[in-house]
Write a protein that binds this DNA or RNA. Structure first.
Lengths: 221, 221
DNA sequence: TTTTGTGAACTAGTTCACAGCT
DNA sequence: AGCTGTGAACTAGTTCACAAAA
């Protein structure tokens, strides 16, 4: 298991599909570790979690040689490597824009904390909300103070959960404040400058895509 | 603008990437219509919303010939066609599994209603929650009664917003109740039988993918 | 033997570029 | 003249299949 001196791939070289899967693999490994499994082959991993063995190996190969031929992967070991590749070997600090229903729910989402993300604040413009807290105690701060808090609290990632009409405005604020990575739930195509990683989760598009499936199912053969 | 007698594509033939984009196009057209635009070329549409003109034309071409050469597309007309293709020309009835923070937020999400989806119920197992309502008045019902409500209320789509550990159980219930389309927010790979359309939104994967980007950005050149 | 890591083959998706319609 | 609709070219992503390692 030599630590390959393979050129560290830059963000552009590895597809987002691959990085998404790395995250999935990590979750699988967590389960395996909890179940006391010490080593696993790509074959077995694929079978157990409905993945493709060759794809697992290829995805991992972008970053090094983590397996042992004839054996497979040491669960603990691969887990550690994946956490390092995904940048989860440090605490990542997250802020949520918009203290509406969705923003509050995301701020308290247990899955984030469980994976090591720290939700440090919610931001809103509504005077009634500012100064309050989410159920789990995340403070709601004034959007005006975003820039200061981003610096002071070293916020790494922002989640945008504001209505469509304020999406672009809020994103601009976030970018100005110096945040480099944004998960956006606000519908519509936001424009971000180069160097900013913007990932969209579009709830309406997701539902409409299901609607399409149903429509075909009925109208079709 | 002849109505092509092109064979109606079945679900398998059109990629999900395409159907997702159709939904995006529809939203763009809504905006254009609201702005009083009557006709638009693929070129102009692409420019205005950061899309690709050839891709727009190709996506639409799967379903017919909706444009007029030399002119472009009639906004109202194309909108109508897209709504029909996406199956939005009827009211779609949606239920949300899990009346936790996320489930409640999704049930009250204004974007769904705006696009014509009707959120008819939340389902949960907790005795304290059953009988209550979301802020906007969606009733919280007993998961035990799911099957009955799916039939009576003709529920088309289910959104799963329950903790990871109950995800598979709830999906199985939903499938048994006869629902064919599911939007799943529960983490981990759920297994659905063939004929069921399962779409996953994995919040943790999304955040970890952003984390990867940040890690590369710093560690890299 | 077993299983990785990986070139080669394949499949899917995007973009180009232009014939043909209005 | 202008723009669609679409084959052809290209690019990206997946899967196969096997040599090499343990």
């Amino acid at each position: 298991m030599k630590q390959t001196n393979k050129r560290k791939p830059t963000t552009e070289q590895v597809s987002e599909l691959t990085t998404n899967r790395l995250s999935v693999y990590l979750r699988c490994l967590n389960q395996l570790e909890a179940a006391g499994v010490e080593t696993i082959s790509s074959q077995a991993l694929a079978q157990q979690f409905h993945l493709n063995a060759a794809q697992i190996r290829k995805d991992l190969a972008y970053f090094g040689e983590f397996g042992v031929r004839g054996v497979g992967y040491y669960v603990k070991d691969l887990k550690r490597h994946l956490r390092q590749i995904l940048g989860l070997d440090r605490r990542l600090r997250v802020a949520v824009m918009g203290a509406g229903n969705l923003g509050l729910a995301l701020a308290d989402y247990p899955g984030f904390r469980r994976e090591g993300f720290e939700i440090v604040a919610l931001f809103d413009v509504s005077a009634e909300k500012i100064g309050e807290h989410s159920r789990s105690g995340v403070p709601i701060l004034d959007l005006k103070d975003l820039r200061r808090h981003v610096r002071r609290d070293r916020i790494d990632i922002v989640v945008i959960a504001v209505p469509a009409e304020s999406g672009q405005f809020v994103l601009d604020q976030v970018v100005t404040a110096g945040v480099k990575a944004v998960l956006n739930f606000s519908p519509g195509a936001l424009k971000a400058p180069a160097g900013i990683k913007l990932k969209n989760v579009d709830l309406t598009v997701s539902l409409e895509s299901l609607s399409f499936y149903l429509a075909q199912d009925e109208g079709g053969e």
